[in-house]
Design a protein around this nucleic acid. Structure first.
Length: 585
RNA sequence: GCGCCCGUAGCUCAGCGGAUAGAGCAAUUGACUACGGAUCAAUAGGUCGGGGGUUCAAAUCCCUCCGGGCGCACCA
């Protein structure tokens, strides 16, 4: 289910602040040809060709005729492979079809050349004016440029991190903090109504182990079996002791356990919230698992599933028949000892989210939890919902920490964990977030702290940020030289590096949309790097500020628009990644 | 044994079935009396893990084998 690509309206200046604009310039601006418009035109042309051939079976959408930007500049500004795709089902020669379509495209205003190449590629070149008009349009759209309506009005819940409050967040969780937050920003840019949610697991045996570890540390006993070790445990103990209002030594073992549990979890949770905040990630909802158990949600969820006929009793336990929906085995929801199994919390939580009105729910998990996917999808079906629509599980592969080139084994129990704070302290928030978000979540990631710390250039975030800072520097110099964004003549943007830069700028909305569709924020990062490269090359070839006592011309003014448009897009792209766009570096 | 992810340049990684497979770093060589050299230009570097198949077209899709990571509870 893919929404049709929004065809953006041509942007006309409303005249404010442009009083001096000439009719000639107005005409040139109106020639702006965006890839979306070109695609829409292409679609109409292709449909016309199909009609003439009497083929009414091929129902096409704009997505079928998406234009690509050729890697080779000799292949024009945009190219389409639609003729080759359709030739077979039409039983015609792809080149003949391409030629026919090309004739139609040639008639579009702003298109300067159309060629049929190779087996049937249609290569399209734009007038400098038609391509260049984008620069002004971007500046006028500002932070809205790149936004789309893919998820307009759709309620989306993103659950990520959700680390147990039994210790600091280690690197695996941090990856999702960066990726999940970025995905939230991208969904918002596509019109989604997004809630970031943290499932606060404060119920169950992990917490008991944590509490026992605290008590043991307090009493000077060794770390219990299955307990947690490390410096942070004794730190928490000290803080609990310092903050306890009464007399701890008067408490029984059970009372101690409860006192340390309550205070320890509270402190740990506060720490986690704080370090996430320092990382630039703030959740809209911190959901306590305890609420589900204490509020009767678990019973209600199971009752609902029982009504639907998916619950049965066996061996003294209560089971959910997940195998009916593709799971490998049925799952126990109430254990034979009467306690709720872990999955019962998931059942209740999912139902709770649906009742809060979320149409699309995402859960982001580490690869060590990918075994849950089937049962959660089965659960979705059992509730009568659609798996992969109402609930989607995103799996992120592991993050390895490299030290001297070899992976370090992290153990919470042994206390040898690298945590969020360590990473941020070593490389800073921007570099840390960028390093975690620039790769596909499907790939395992190696983070080499030494390398990141030692040579800042190893992280392309600086390349991108520098490009942004440079746009600002150029703008400052332009202002000092009397170059202003008054006149704009897009036809002057005819240098090779300018058409390349404009082509990259034009792609941004599609990159955002694709990142949203595929749930892959790393595409935005890669795009930002590509844009930064195109900008640096342009900067090297095209001056915005006149040299010496040369007069300021419309060329300088027009280039300032392009410079500022690039700055806008770099800022927007970095913003989607949660990375700052500095004015100076 | 079954399932998920990965295997692309020396390293870290991109690459929606399309044209000569890319970027950053590392290496070599050039470019500041020109808007910031955290930059740019150029060179070198590849059996896209191996083998089959589908296709006009495969790094991309299918099968298989090899290698690596992670999972397969009345634990959470």
């Amino acid at each position: 289910m893919v929404d049709p690509l929004k065809v953006s309206e041509p942007i006309f200046a409303d005249g404010e602040g442009d009083a001096s604009r000439t009719r000639q310039q107005a005409r040139i601006e109106s020639m702006l040809v965006t890839p979306a418009e070109l695609s829409a035109n292409l679609l109409a042309i292709v449909e016309g060709a199909l009609e003439r051939r009497g083929d009414v079976t091929a129902a096409l959408t704009v997505d079928d005729v998406l234009l690509e930007r050729p890697k080779n500049r000799e292949h024009g500004d945009w190219s389409s492979n639609i003729a080759m795709k359709l030739a077979k089902q039409l039983g015609t020669n792809p080149r003949a079809l391409a030629t026919e379509i090309a004739d139609g495209i040639r008639a579009i205003e702003g298109v300067s050349a159309v060629d049929v190449a190779g087996p049937g590629f249609i290569n399209i070149s734009l007038d400098a004016a038609a391509a260049g008009a984008l620069a002004k349009s971007i500046v006028e759209q500002g932070e809205d440029y790149g936004h789309g309506d893919l998820y307009e009005g759709v309620t989306i819940n993103l659950e990520f991190v959700s680390a147990n409050p039994t210790g600091p967040i280690h690197l695996g969780g941090v990856r999702w903090a960066a990726v999940g937050d970025s995905l939230a920003r991208i969904f918002k840019a596509e019109g989604g109504i997004v809630t970031r949610e943290y499932y606060f697991n404060d119920h169950g045996t992990q917490i008991d182990r944590f509490a026992r570890s605290l008590v043991a540390s307090y009493l000077g006993e060794p770390t219990p079996e299955d307990g947690y070790g490390g410096q942070y445990i004794s730190d928490i103990v000290d803080r609990v002791v310092a903050g306890y209002p009464g007399d701890l030594s008067a408490l029984s073992r059970d009372e101690l356990q409860e006192a340390f549990r309550a205070a320890g979890v509270d402190l740990m949770f506060g720490d986690i919230k704080q370090s996430l905040h320092d990382f630039g990630v703030d959740f809209d909802v911190y959901f306590h698992e305890n609420l589900l158990h204490e509020g009767g949600d678990v019973e209600r969820a199971i009752a609902r599933l029982r009504d639907l006929g998916h619950i049965y009793e066996a061996d003294g336990a209560t089971w959910l028949r997940t195998t009916e929906f593709g799971d490998d085995k049925d799952r126990v929801v109430i254990k034979s000892d009467g306690d709720a199994a872990y999955i019962s919390g998931d059942l209740a939580y999912y139902l709770n989210k649906r009742e809060r009105g979320f149409e699309r729910n995402f859960i982001m998990l580490g690869a060590d939890h990918h075994g849950y996917v089937k049962r959660l999808m089965a659960m979705t079906s059992a509730f009568g919902d659609v798996p992969r629509v109402n609930l989607e599980i995103l799996i992120g592969q592991m993050v390895n920490l490299l030290k001297d080139g070899t992976p370090q084994r992290m153990s919470k129990r042994a206390g040898t964990v690298v945590v969020l704070e360590d990473l941020v302290e070593a490389v800073g928030v921007d570099a840390a977030r960028y390093a975690l978000v620039r790769s596909s979540s499907d790939s395992q990631l190696d983070v080499d702290l030494d390398l990141l710390t030692r040579r800042t250039n190893d992280n392309p975030v600086f390349y991108v940020q520098y490009a942004h800072a440079r746009t600002r520097s150029v703008a400052r110099n332009a202002a000092a030289s009397g170059v202003e964004r008054t006149a704009f003549d897009a036809s002057l943007l005819d240098h090779d590096t300018e058409s390349e830069l404009l082509g990259v700028l034009a792609e941004f909305p599609r990159v955002v949309r694709q990142a949203a569709e595929l749930r892959e924020p790393h595409r935005v990062a890669r795009y930002a790097e590509e844009l930064a490269g195109a900008y640096h090359r342009w900067y090297d070839n095209c001056r915005v500020t006149p040299l010496g006592d040369e007069p300021v011309t419309d060329l300088h003014r027009t280039r300032l628009w392009l410079n500022d448009a690039t700055g806008t897009v770099l800022r927007n792209a970095l913003g989607l990644l949660g990375v700052s766009a500095p004015e100076r570096m």
